[in-house]
């Protein structure tokens, strides 16, 4: 697949650029927060912004496969960075919650986790992300083989709890959460129809020579 593919020698640089650009929104919000640029309740604004960027990177990571299947755009070499960016934002979101928001008052934090479904969902998402982040290196991929694929299917559950965590944390579902619910639903639903899509594509590729058939590599 050609698509947007860069020359191989530029790949590592472009991945590092993605990490740098991906962390910018969080760093910029931190900078604004320090200098009073996040409005009247900067802690809440910062905490929510970090959470939202985590969700955005999760969605982008989940979009890699459908983009390749359906549009022939291959971004697979950026998927690990997208997933890790999501993880970093979740960690930052959680850290701000523990420190700046709850002030490290353990009783209040434990009470929060035990009583509030949206906090439980958020915690579940964080816990599930940890093994994925920990196995996001080449060594683990080689070592785990097929189990690596199985393990990383957890990201579907993570995306689901993440978007629910977001929607349930709000007083009313407005356009923005509705948008993310729709995006995650489409991205996850695609996984259900994907076997059909690949079957259909294979069928087309193997069809007897028509004008448009391309030689398979």
């Amino acid at each position: 697949m050609a698509g947007l593919a860069l020359p191989a020698r530029l790949k590592p640089a472009s991945v590092w650029t993605l990490y740098a650009v991906g962390l910018l929104p969080g760093l910029y919000a931190f900078y604004l927060g320090i200098f009073g640029g996040l409005g009247a309740d900067p802690v809440r604004a910062f905490e929510h912004l970090l959470g939202l960027w985590a969700l955005r990177f999760l969605c982008l990571g989940l979009a890699v496969t459908p983009l390749r299947d359906l549009l022939g755009i291959n971004l697979i070499s950026y998927r690990r960075a997208l997933g890790l960016l999501a993880f970093y934002y979740v960690l930052a979101h959680f850290t701000v919650y523990l420190t700046l928001d709850r002030g490290l008052i353990i009783s209040s934090i434990l009470g929060d986790i035990a009583k509030r479904p949206y906090i439980m969902l958020g915690m579940a998402g964080l816990l599930m992300l940890i093994p994925l982040a920990a196995t996001s290196n080449r060594w683990s991929i080689r070592r785990l083989g097929q189990n690596w694929n199985r393990l990383h299917k957890l990201v579907y559950a993570i995306a689901a709890v993440a978007v629910l965590h977001y929607a349930l944390s709000l007083k009313a579902v407005t356009a923005e959460p509705a948008f993310y619910i729709a995006v995650v639903t489409v991205l996850l639903a695609y996984r259900l129809v994907r076997p059909k899509v690949t079957e259909w594509k294979r069928g087309r590729r193997n069809a007897p020579a028509g004008g448009s058939a391309r030689p398979s590599v």
């Binding site: 931190f30 927060g33 320090i34 200098f35 009073g36 996040l38 009247a40 309740d41 900067p42 802690v43 809440r44 910062f46 700046l100 928001d101 002030g103 008052i105 209040s108 009470g111 929060d112 009583k115 509030r116 479904p117 949206y118 349930l168 944390s169 007083k171």
Partner: peptide
């Protein structure tokens, strides 16, 4: 169900991100 009501954040108490216990 969504928020503990035991404590609150006083708006404007913090100059930026820190100091708003």
């Amino acid at each position: 169900p969504r928020w503990s009501q035991a404590s609150e954040r006083r708006i404007g108490e913090a100059e930026g991100l820190f100091g708003g216990a």
